[in-house]
Design a binder for these strands. Structure first.
Length: 495
RNA sequence: GGUCUCGUGGCCGAGUGGCUAGGCGGAGGUCUGCAAAACCUUUUACAGCGGUUCGAAUCCGCUCGAGACCUCCA
């Protein structure tokens, strides 16, 4: 285990707290995954990248992390009214598919997008529909404890009753008494005793497709219950970190807290982490607003708002350049800036492999590693760590230009630090390495040959031949750069 | 209406009492057969008003503006 002084902003206290796992070296991390009834959009990439960073960094520090990210495939209703339709079931009805076909289709596509973004797979990826029994058991426990009631085959959480023994609303700062007045009128809430009550189990109407037997008749679980049930099953009744988007803070996470306390008599989560939203024209990118752009559309450039296609790594870097608790505003300009910046960073890493050590160093690079750790220990401040790395990029390029020098110790230290942070922790990788060992080797071999031929032409001042090679490669999005030490090349972004 | 967050230079974004983050863009220069890249210099900041302080972008108050949640949303 590395020595560290990791601080995490806990949404529950709204303060930065020292991170102390319950049972080191183990860490339990639960993150709310997607409801699989549509393609993932840019907004979905935010928690994925954020908690991928958390996962990677905790592992890097030496923790044994069990990372659970669920797939919601049942119980997520269009709205809170009794006639609210299940999101998955609705999609299935519209497309005339079996609900599980919808689930499988979008789960596969989600995985594909996540892989492109170089998101590590979670340790466990449980589905809500695979844990009906656990959810029924939890609902029973809550009923038995007296914090829920049954009406017509549905089970509702009794918020008012719960609030007498615990404090409902401590995460979102809501007060139960005040929630009645502010609540909008929703039809079909007759069964609930209090507007703030929420379903643990819903009776299935005769036409409802997704249904399971339960002590209360055929039905399906409420949305909030799955996370509580699956978190407890795989991470224990108390675990370290629970993450998700800020928009889930209320009611979803508030309900989770209540369910866990009601069922187990204690809080399930030590540290609540919430990533902020991605905005577009200053407004939240979201499904209901219809202003979202899917990740596939970004990768292909196939959305009318996009001026070009964006590499998944550009998206990843774009997200890492902002702190996870800040909103991040999308625009083509901002993404293009991220694309250029990432190229500069990755190019410097390649340069780092090529430059040769001197006897002495003219610059001090020993502090870089320390500064990067300090940044990440401060609530995973990736943008600050990246800024430090960019400072070293300038140094690296100056060494390449023979304006500065590095000793072999310093050079080695820089290489290690860049690999650790850029590759391992930030999960950023260049195009070439992703193409597989074999084809990558072939390409670099071919490029060496081409550049050698071009160099010979240049020696003989045969500019037409040398420019022809360069222009043709340019046409393939390969940039040729002539330096003092010969020429180098890189693959540029797609246009 | 309630709860909360935010307003930083052309753009994206760190910072949260004194030491002008960083990236992208613009301008000038060095290098180069040309180009690209790189390097150097440079440009425009902390919404407004008041207060606390030796000192505020940073703390407090007010005003204006934007957003999130209160229904599903990452």
């Amino acid at each position: 285990m590395k020595n560290h002084d990791l601080h995490i902003t806990n949404s529950l206290t709204r303060k930065k707290e020292v991170f102390q796992p319950i049972k080191p070296p183990f860490v339990g991390l639960y993150v709310c995954g997607p409801t699989v009834y549509g393609d993932a959009h840019l907004g979905h990439a935010r928690p994925a990248v954020t908690f991928d960073l958390v996962f990677r960094y905790l592992k890097h520090l030496g923790y044994k992390v069990r990372y659970v990210r669920n797939i919601t495939d049942v119980g997520h209703l269009e709205n809170d009214a009794d006639d609210g339709e299940d999101k998955v079931a609705k999609k299935a009805r519209l497309e005339q598919l079996e609900p599980m076909e919808v689930v499988q289709y979008y789960t596969d596509r989600y995985h594909h997008d996540m892989e492109k973004l170089n998101i590590l797979k979670p340790s466990i990826e449980p589905r809500a529909s695979g844990h009906i029994i656990e959810q029924i058991e939890m609902a029973r426990a809550i009923l038995k404890a007296g914090y829920a009631y049954e009406v017509n085959g549905s089970v509702y959480f009794d918020v008012a009753r719960y609030n007498m023994d615990y404090k409902y609303g401590k995460l979102s700062g809501r007060v139960v008494e005040e929630m009645v007045a502010g609540n909008r009128d929703l039809e079909g809430q007759d069964e609930k005793r209090h507007p703030a009550d929420f379903a643990l189990w819903k009776k299935a109407s005769p036409t409802h497709i997704m249904r399971w037997p339960s002590p209360w008749g055929e039905g399906f679980p409420g949305w909030h219950l799955e996370c509580s049930a699956m978190g407890a099953k795989y991470l224990g009744t108390t675990f370290d970190i629970h993450g998700g988007g800020m928009d889930l803070l209320f009611p979803h996470h508030e309900c989770e807290i209540a369910q866990s306390n009601a069922a187990n008599g204690k809080d399930a989560v030590r540290y609540w982490m919430h990533n902020n939203m991605i905005t577009i024209n200053g407004q939240k990118m979201g499904k209901s607003l219809g202003n979202f752009i899917t990740l596939r559309e970004f990768f292909e450039g196939s959305h009318k708002s996009l001026h070009q296609a964006y590499d998944p790594m550009t998206i990843r870097f774009f997200i890492l350049q902002a702190h996870y608790r800040s909103t991040l505003d999308f625009s083509n300009e901002a993404l293009q800036a991220a694309e250029k910046g990432l190229q500069r960073l990755l190019q410097a890493m390649e340069t780092l492999e090529r430059i040769k050590a001197s006897k002495t160093s003219s610059v001090d690079v020993s502090l870089l590693e320390k500064k990067c750790y300090e940044a990440l220990n401060d609530d995973f401040n990736a943008p600050v760590a990246i800024a430090h790395l960019f400072d070293s990029v300038r140094t690296i390029n100056s060494v390449k230009d023979k304006k500065e020098s590095l000793s072999s110790d310093h050079l080695e230290s820089l290489r290690n630090t860049f690999k650790t942070f850029v590759t391992d922790i930030f999960g950023l990788s260049g195009e070439i390495s992703k193409q597989g060992e074999e084809s990558g080797q072939i390409i670099s071999g071919l490029m060496d040959l081409l550049l050698e031929l071009r160099q010979e032409a240049r020696k003989q001042k045969d500019w037409s031949t040398s420019d022809k090679i360069r222009d043709a490669l340019n046409g393939l999005n390969i940039n040729v750069k002539d330096g003092a030490e010969g020429s180098s090349w890189s693959i540029s972004g797609k246009n």
